[in-house]
Nucleic acid binder design. Structure first.
Lengths: 219, 219
DNA sequence: TTTATTATTTAGATTTGTCTAAATAATATT
DNA sequence: AATATTATTTAGACAAATCTAAATAATAAA
């Protein structure tokens, strides 16, 4: 099955919005892809024709087994390129998403597998997201909670759920990245902000919104 | 100036066919791009509009200064990716062209420059072609002749002019690559075939057609 | 349960890049 | 120089991916 870039992008976004099994709505997908609902409807018909999604008028979209397989390949490529950019070309965390967005569309299995090997077959990308293997299998995620709900005192950053450039740049400025060790100093009930100490730095206070998007596990 | 993939491919092929200053014909370009002459005419109008080429009806095409600059950037990306694929991902000589053809369209200067740095700022690619630097400057090519016209006995392979998979696979099978040392044993007048000894191997005979596409310089 | 609101789809248009077939220009041949 | 051949362009069509505006379905509110 040879997918166009537009088709791949739709498949990938459906996968992202589905989060397991949820039905994806036309509007949500249009918003995610920065297009119009009418365009999504058009594409949905095409992808249904190709048996990559299940879709009935007005009933929303889910990936078929084939669609999920395709999505995992795209995600694999995306995350491997992110690793490459960060580890080999010294790009910072927040810069890599857009570039990986382009590189992911080079659909060569051989290239993908060689790249993976070159990187030491990593299983998580620089944002902490798991990288599907050549068969599309995801490493089972280690238990993690968002920082605002963590109860342990000493924690390690394992992922960031909002990958907007703004948040990633903020975290970068504060010296917070994957694997960074944190210590919770205080919770402020008033606005649910949290005071944390980043290992080797002085304490800072972060908003609830930021805390919600930082995933951690106990050290 | 933001070029589409189709526009970039046209620019690149014009650059390739121009070889310095020659005028490129509609038919030649169509053949090179595996499209139809009518399509080339359409694109020529568009590229002229964008001031990337000089073009008058029935008079053929040449690159403008801007067009040449754009072409050199594309060529730079293409050749850097070829280096990456061969040196870092252990692809063989003849496999990399198609992949680089896709990777070259990721138009990020930062990525290109970081990649170049990562590779040690190479000045020739795995086929022996020079890699333009960030300003589009080409290393001046060292004096070289095709193997069928060489007069020295002992030679080094510096480039291959026909990059068809067939030829590259042939050379690969015979253990001939960039930097390979050759010794000319005999010329056969009958069909202009040449007997050569590849360093460390027994002698082989190659056709005139092959010899014409292997560039060498005296050892 | 009507009515209002929101979500989704349809119909028809647009852009990009391509094509075929026909027309025209340039070049080669007699 | 007239004619034949080849190269190039034009005209009109098509597919992919998108859009806007209007129509319809689903859902929420009165």
């Amino acid at each position: 099955m040879n997918l166009s870039i537009a088709e791949e992008n739709h498949i990938k976004s459906i996968y992202k919005l589905q989060e397991g099994d949820a039905v994806v709505t036309t509007n949500a997908l249009a918003y995610e892809l920065d297009t119009k609902p009418a365009s999504v409807t058009d594409m949905a018909k095409k992808l249904k024709e190709k048996k990559l999604i299940e879709y009935e008028k007005y009933k929303g979209i889910t990936l078929s087994a084939d669609g999920r397989k395709a999505a995992l390949q795209i995600v694999r490529r995306h995350r491997l390129w992110e690793c490459f950019l960060v580890e080999k070309l010294s790009f910072s965390w927040e810069e890599v998403h857009e570039l990986a967005e382009e590189l992911e569309h080079v659909r060569s299995e051989k290239l993908t597998n060689r790249l993976s090997e070159f990187l030491g077959n990593p299983v998580i990308d620089p944002h902490g997201d798991p990288i599907p293997d050549a068969n599309g299998k995801l490493a089972k995620p280690r238990p993690q909670t968002s920082l605002d709900q963590a109860n342990a005192k000493r924690l390690v950053v394992t992922a960031v759920t909002d990958q907007s450039t703004a948040l990633l740049a903020f975290l970068n400025a504060k010296g917070i990245k994957l694997g960074t060790q944190l210590e919770i100093m205080a919770h402020y009930e008033y606005d649910n902000s949290i005071e944390i100490k980043v290992k080797g730095q002085s304490a800072i206070t972060i908003s609830e919104q930021v805390a919600k998007n930082i995933m951690v596990r106990p050290l």
